[in-house]
């Protein structure tokens, strides 16, 4: 691990695979995140209404209704049963993430990820080592709180403060002061605690983690025998605790990264010079 300190993370992969291949999944993710926001902005900016609404609930080409299953779940907990449009929309989106991986939402869709990735990048550049540490279980606590409060008060309480839906909404609709939250999350992640928001606090991420426990597409440490312990994957992984059981397991254990916390961001695939990781479905042991 000592050799890690003065090394640029992913350098080996860049040398061995070339810059483009060593950033393939990262680039694809950024394209995905930006084009989703871009599609939402096509309407208000250019008057091309491919998709209307925001990531909480939207209407594609005036026909397909999509709804965020976590927002939908909160609505259910308030004791209100919404119209079929929203129910079917939430089922479609949940099925989508059930197949592609629960937290694909976090790493491929949610624009907050760009902010927190940037904060983590700054940490690495400035070599910030201090980090206020707290439990990654906090997000499940907040998930529970958001649902309990919804049912106690009959209001979508978490949506009063949810920076994820708030920022998504205000990018597409009028921008209020939510840019302050963007700055806040960046400061929190960069200078206070590493991966604090997405990896420790966000109950939306926690919800998608639970979905990710049963989802199909998984990162797989299929060539774990060729691992040379460079630790680059741990350094870039937003949820490094998920790697070890798959990468360093014994012969009988599965090389599949089974934890629901894995965001399927596939950055580990990018930075690995030894091509240890790949993306497969979960049923390959």
């Amino acid at each position: 691990m000592a050799k890690n300190i003065n090394k640029v993370i992913g350098q080996d992969a860049v040398i061995k695979k070339g810059w483009l291949l060593a950033h393939k999944w990262l680039l694809l993710r950024r394209i995905s995140q930006l084009s989703i926001i871009g599609l939402f902005l096509l309407g208000p900016v250019f008057g091309i209404w491919f998709i209307k609404g925001n990531m909480s609930s939207s209407l594609v080409l005036d026909t397909l209704s999509l709804t965020d299953p976590f927002v939908f779940l909160q609505t259910l907990f308030t004791g209100y049963l919404p119209e079929m449009t929203v129910i079917s929309g939430a089922v479609i989106v949940a099925l989508f993430y059930f197949i592609l991986g629960g937290r694909v939402y976090c790493s491929w869709v949610c624009p907050i990820n760009i902010i927190t990735d940037a904060a983590d990048w700054l940490r690495r550049v400035l070599k910030i080592k201090t980090s206020l540490s707290f439990s990654r279980m906090g997000r499940y606590g907040l998930l529970l709180v958001s649902l309990v409060l919804a049912s106690l008060s009959g209001v979508l309480v978490w949506e009063l403060v949810n920076p994820v839906t708030m920022i998504q909404r205000e990018i597409v609709f009028a921008m209020g002061y939510s840019w302050l939250l963007i700055v806040g999350i960046f400061i929190l992640d960069a200078f206070v605690s590493r991966r604090a928001w997405c990896g420790h606090l966000c109950p939306m991420g926690a919800f998608y983690s639970l979905l990710g426990r049963v989802s199909i597409i998984k990162v797989n440490a299929i060539n774990r025998d060729s691992c040379n312990d460079c630790m680059d994957c741990y350094a870039v992984c937003p949820e490094p605790q998920v790697i070890k059981p798959a990468l360093k397991g014994n012969v009988t254990s599965s090389p599949v990264i089974n934890s629901g916390n894995c965001t399927n961001c596939a950055r580990c695939i990018d930075v690995c010079a030894e091509n240890v990781f790949t993306i497969k479905h979960r049923f390959i042991n």
Partner: peptide
């Protein structure tokens, strides 16, 4: 109260 338990803040009405 009923409105706040049902509205998902999607803004489709606004659009």
């Amino acid at each position: 109260g009923d409105f706040l338990s049902a509205c998902v803040r999607c803004g489709l009405c606004v659009r």
